[in-house]
Design a protein around this nucleic acid. Sequence first.
RNA 1: GCACUCGUAGCUCAACGGAUAGAGCAUCUGACUACGGAUCAGAAGGUUGGGGGUUCGAAUCCUCCCGAGUGCGCCA
Length: 589
Amino acid sequence: MTDPQHVLSQRVQAALGAALGDDFADADPVIRPSQFADFQCNAPLALAKRVGRKPREVATEIVNCLDIGDMCREVEVSGPGFINLTLRDDWIAAQARQLLDDPRLGVPEQERQNIPIDYSAPNVAKEMHVGHLRTTVVGDTLARTLEFLGHNVIRQNHIGDWGTPFGMLIEHLLDVGEDSAEAELLKSDPNAFYQAARAKFDAAEEAAQAGGPGPVSDFAARSRARVVALQRGDPATLRLWRELVDFSKVYFNKVYAKLGVTLTDADLAGESSYNDMLGAVCDELEAKGIAQVSDGALCVFLDEFTGREGRPVPLIIRKSDGGYGYGTTDLATLKYRVEELKADRIIYVVGAPQNLHLRMVYASAREAGWLPDHVVPTHVQIGNVLGEDGKILRTRSGRSLRLMALLDEAIERAAAVVAETRPDLDAATRDEIAQDVGIGAVKYADLSVAHDSEYVFDFDRMLALNGNTGPYQQYAVARIRSIFRKGGISPEDATGDINIGHSTERTLALTLLGFGPTVAQVGDELEPHRLCSYLFDLAQAFTSFYEHCPVLRAEEEQVRDSRLALTAATLRTLVQGLELLGVRAPQQM
RNA sequence: GCACUCGUAGCUCAACGGAUAGAGCAUCUGACUACGGAUCAGAAGGUUGGGGGUUCGAAUCCUCCCGAGUGCGCCA
């Protein structure tokens, strides 16, 4: 048991029962870190009214019943009725030392849940751009964290692999030839392929309107026919469609490999995979009287959703031409996740603009009985990434930024720094460091701000070695590893007792104990930036300790062993924390 | 018009209803024969967009205004 907040909460709870009676024995008082002491409890303030007495009196009474001498050196009532708690150094030291034997670093066991997480979701035959960065990176961190907490995470990469654009894409693929260089673009620069198809389609539309049939306008007609063939399940069309998807998979996997995320082909669950359910979804909604035909389209109208001029906003589940849109797919997906994946909790890591749509999907599914009350869908809203001008990040020409290009630039910039600072290393090692630092910087920058807030993308800031950045954390890890390298000691062998002598040792040890609660909180609230804040605190606590407390050069052997153990615990915690963020910590940098 | 997300130091961002709103950049002061100075110690910097309200206590909750972004029927 290494989580002081949890232990203190239990102690205070016992005292509450003793002081105020059995009615309060299950009050579960909240303990928070505080600037006035190590921890603070405000339960007396919350309970004072209930017992009709003054908060300070209540607090004093609780303190009198508190049996806590083994872990606290000071307990006092202060302010309007807070209980301030200051831990004993030897207790902190002992708990910090326990982390070294604990494979989970003090992270509490959770009740195991089935949790599908919907994230990344790029489109076939389209470029991944900055918008995909956050949904991919945030989703991946949540997946890693919930898995670490013991849950059964089911990664769901809901790729856009179905719908009207595929008619023109397939026709274009046929036109250029499946083995052509143009088709190869799908694996490296899919936008070029998509744009070509799009341009051809638009030109064909124009030609068709202007002068009737011809070889150009023919393309639009062929594309439309191809969509129908695709939805009908025509084998030849399906084969071509699959080829498009396969080409795109190669591209996705390139990006994922570069980015270092845990998604694999096994996690692909694109829109097409729900195709067979769409008809039944519509039929059932119609039969239950939830959906009605309006202007030729089958729609679900719900009272709580109104749009312009107070008119109800529909969730269109079957278009007037008989086709299905993403509303239908999303309903089928939700149904599948509840019924087949046995979801206890469903997480959508999706852009903030989709909020209304998702809420309508949830509401419709609840209405239909596909989403039981105990299953809670959560939309982790992803905010936009902005450029220096405060507008959505784009290239100078106004196009959205290619994710691949952005990652390459980050690596290049990191490489330039490494080349300057570490000319002693060989090229291969420098290259590896540049990869880890460049990618780590981008991912960390993305994760360290609240997922729903927009943030300004700035290479210089994210690659800085100071501040709440990836490289700062990586540097802290590199220095720790350097200590062990220089001392000829393996971190696993640093298992001595921890004794606290210096104030920076105390701060470091106490901060270490915060890892478990922080990870649990990230799992509950789905906010990775809290883990970043924590790791930044930890890295700062370590560098401060590192400045003030020599480890290898400590004069007494006992002090040296203690500091080595503290350093080893820090290393493990930082590396584990960064791993949950999907940020690699190089051996040196 | 309605809905969602926001408005915090010069800049970029934090703050789970709790005391004196915190970091980092930038600025200024200190500390280098360094277990890796890509650092550390410190200073300065705020009427939390504005007005009301809820309560022991509000950046946080409610309400009204001002401002920004996004979304509101056949793209996904």
